[in-house]
């Protein structure tokens, strides 16, 4: 995408120097692709905390002193992003019957996600844990590791049919 755009931009500029363009275009296109890649890396960093931490210093090695500055900015971003969902919605009770809500705070296999991943506040995490355990009891949510049991028989059924 980035390369196409770059080339598209270069073509209007190309006509003046007709034969110089072919040699110029590839190099600029290459550069465009590269910068685009770096940009993507930077983008994928911020949402995940660990990724941002590791990726930041390595990729942006040049502004080594910089990370102090940008990271402060990033941290504010994190704070803003990781607000307790239940506090925002002002839920004073986490209903164990709402499996759709609870499943957002559970791994695929049924493990309860830690607070540091979801940003839930301590109080709500406590209630959430109780609610998830209740939901598990009545088969609304899986117990950790029981996902394997449900997938294995399906694999057996598939070859038969």
């Amino acid at each position: 995408m980035a390369e196409e755009q770059k080339q598209g931009q270069t073509t209007p500029a190309a006509p003046p120097r007709a034969e110089g363009a072919p040699s110029g275009a590839p190099s600029s296109g290459h550069g465009g692709g590269h910068s685009g890649h770096a940009g993507q890396g930077g983008h994928s960093g911020p949402p995940r905390r660990e990724g941002g931490r590791e990726g930041g210093p390595r990729r942006e090695g040049g502004p080594g002193g910089g990370p102090g500055g940008p990271r402060r900015g990033k941290r504010q971003y994190f704070r803003k992003k990781k607000v307790c969902k239940f506090c925002v919605e002002k839920m004073d009770l986490i209903d164990y019957k709402r499996a759709d809500i609870l499943s957002q705070f559970v791994q695929e296999r049924g493990k309860i996600l830690p607070r540091r991943m979801t940003g839930v506040c301590a109080r709500h995490q406590r209630w959430l844990g109780v609610a998830i355990k209740r939901a598990r009891n009545i088969a609304l949510l899986p117990f950790a590791g029981s996902a394997a049991g449900s997938t294995a028989p399906k694999a057996v059924e598939a070859p038969k049919s």
Partner: peptide, 10 residues
Amino acid sequence: KLAYKVAKHR
């Protein structure tokens, strides 16, 4: 759908 098998039922 049950999250896990209960009495061999899904």
